[in-house]
Amino acid sequence: MSVEKQPKEALFAPKNMKLIFNPLNKENPITVQVLGICSALAVTVKLEPAVVMSISVLAVLAFANVIISLLRNTIAPRIRIIVQLVVIASLVILVDQILKAFAYEVSKQLSVFVGLIITNCILMGRLEAFAMGNKPWPSLLDGIGNALGYAWILIVVAFFRELFGSGTIWGFPVLEYTGLYHIGYKNNGLMILPPMALIIVGIIIWIQRYRNRELIENK
């Protein structure tokens, strides 16, 4: 894990790129590491809040990783959890304030879930497992990679829930143009309700593990 003692390497060396791409599939925070599901699923009724949520998590995770990584040699082990929590909480408060100021409509939809980024296990998990022991640049990449891994699951779930639940994508009534409603198609109200988010994630995991057999759990 430790990159510290090696000679200077290129910014986009293959090893660093892995930090970004691994979390997208093999080490996906949601479907493989089982982190950060808590707040993820509740905001996936529509695409727009899901994207804003992803961007917020990306910003918080990347900055928190860098800050903790910069501070890593000054933090006393006894207070490290508190320091991590304070850094995360402050960043989340900033994001919340900025959303309230510049994306008011979305911030209303996200309501308490912005605050819940604080307890998003991805954050604590990455800070503890990666940023505490690595230099700022790899930490930044690691943060971005994990946030993107989180984001694509969120966006896929939100896409299907919005398409089948409300017949729209990003608010545009796409299904209306296809004329499906005339032949008797109806929006599936179940997709809007919370349980379907879990089932969709279950199906994503199924497909992912079917394609990537090494992830299958032992009995």
């Binding site: 479907t31 089982v34 179940l190 309700l193 919370p194 349980p195 379907m196 988010a197 879990l198 089932i199 994630v201 279950g202 199906i203 995991i205 199924w206 497909i207 992912q208 593990r209 079917y210 057999r213 992830l215 299958i216 759990e217 009995k219």
Partner: peptide, 20 residues
Amino acid sequence: IPAPLRGLGITFIITGLMGI
């Protein structure tokens, strides 16, 4: 259970059904 669904996958789906 189908192998790829074992463990995490089926737990999600069951939680969804319990939610319903």
